[in-house]
Amino acid sequence: MNRVLICDFLLKRNKTESFLKRLITVDEKWITCDKNVRRRFWSKGKRAPHTIAKPRLTRNKLMLCIWWDWKGIIHCELLPQGKTINSDLFCQQLMRLKQEVERKQPAEKINQ
């Protein structure tokens, strides 16, 4: 079968059994954020110490995970710096996603 026939079949099937609205999609994206680094200097005498910004910025790379359905964003997470997706973390994320879906859409719970 070719793709056009399969897509046509799925669209016709969706008219009798609405399954496309039950789909949840996830995407991961590496993002960089800039953080100004400041440094304190000791002052002479009784003056308060002053802060000077470093001339360059420090770049941090974080992973953003977003889940959405046909209504919009359901859940998103920003992973700590240097952390990537592995099987344990993904299972934990799926459990948190399940809780969010149950909280936001109680009539449309995810099957276990």
Rank of each mutant, 00 (worst) to 15 (best):
L23Y: 09
K12W: 10
L23N: 05
T58K: 08
Q92W: 08
I66E: 06
V26W: 02
V101F: 00
P49L: 04
K15W: 03
T32Q: 10
L78N: 09
E28Q: 11
C65Y: 00
V26S: 12
Q93W: 04
L20P: 01
P80I: 02
R56E: 13
C65F: 02
L79M: 12
H75L: 10
N60Y: 14
I110S: 05
I73N: 03
D34E: 08
C33E: 10
L94N: 13
L10K: 07
L11Q: 08
E28P: 01
L11P: 03
S18Y: 09
Q112T: 10
W70I: 11
R59A: 05
E100D: 11
E100C: 09
L62N: 08
N86C: 06
W67T: 00
P55C: 05
T32R: 02
R40K: 07
I66P: 01
S87Q: 13
W30S: 10
K109L: 05
L20D: 01
R3N: 11
R96D: 14
D8Q: 10
D34Y: 07
V37S: 14
R56M: 11
K54A: 09
C7S: 04
A107T: 00
G45P: 13
D27P: 01
N86W: 04
S43T: 13
N14V: 01
W70E: 07
L97D: 05
F41S: 15
I74S: 06
N60Q: 12
L5I: 12
I6Q: 08
E108Y: 12
A107E: 01
R96V: 07
P80Q: 07
Q99K: 15
K71F: 04
L62I: 09
I24E: 01
I24N: 01
I85S: 12
W67M: 03
T16F: 09
N14R: 03
N14E: 10
C76F: 14
P106C: 05
W42K: 13
N86M: 07
N111L: 08
A53S: 12
R13H: 11
N2Y: 06
H75K: 10
I6K: 04
G72C: 02
F41I: 11
K35L: 09
K35G: 03
D34I: 00
K21F: 08
N111T: 10
K98Q: 10
